[in-house]
């Protein structure tokens, strides 16, 4: 329990040890720890960035997928519209054609009928004249009786 010259010995030992520890343990370890800290932080930042990038890519993919879907739906709708249009047009054309054919037929029929009527009329007139000639025994001047004949033919 005394203070002796050992004090100075101990002081020297501790002083040298502090220098040694600073040189060979403290500074390398602190550097390594700082280094590790930076690298961990960098790694985390990179991971975060990657995560963000992935998220962005995902978003983009979704966006593009949505756009493609929209586009395809539009295309399909257009195609359907076009198809129905074509069908409608074909239908209308067919109807028109049918009507045209029908009306043409009808007109022809009417014409044919009127022609037949006319023919019939003239024949009737001729027949009537010849009949009347035979009955009367004399020629009927068609020019004289034209009026009566025409009236007759109209009546038929």
């Amino acid at each position: 329990m005394n203070v002796t010259a050992t004090l100075f010995g101990q002081l020297i030992v501790f002083t040298v040890l502090i220098w040694f520890i600073k040189q060979y343990l403290w500074e390398p370890v602190i550097t390594a720890l700082e280094d590790r800290k930076t690298r961990v932080a960098e790694g985390l930042a990179a991971a975060e960035e990657g995560h963000k990038f992935e998220e962005q890519a995902q978003k983009q993919v979704e966006e593009e997928l949505g756009a493609a879907k929209n586009q395809s739906a539009e295309l399909i709708a257009q195609a359907q519209k076009r198809a129905s249009e074509i069908v409608e047009k074909a239908k209308a054309d067919a109807t028109e054609e049918a009507n045209r054919i029908k009306s043409a037929g009808e007109a022809e029929l009417t014409m044919e009928r009127s022609r037949a009527t006319e023919e019939l009329r003239s024949q009737v007139a001729t027949l009537a004249i010849s009949g009347a000639e035979k009955i009367l025994g004399k020629e009927i001047d068609s020019n004289v009786h034209a009026k009566a004949l025409a009236e007759l033919a109209a009546k038929i």
Binding site: N2, V3, T4, A5, T6, G9, Q10, V13
Partner: peptide
Amino acid sequence: EALVDFSVFFVDIF
């Protein structure tokens, strides 16, 4: 000898 005696050096603890 005294409380502070610099003539002594303790080899063991050193």
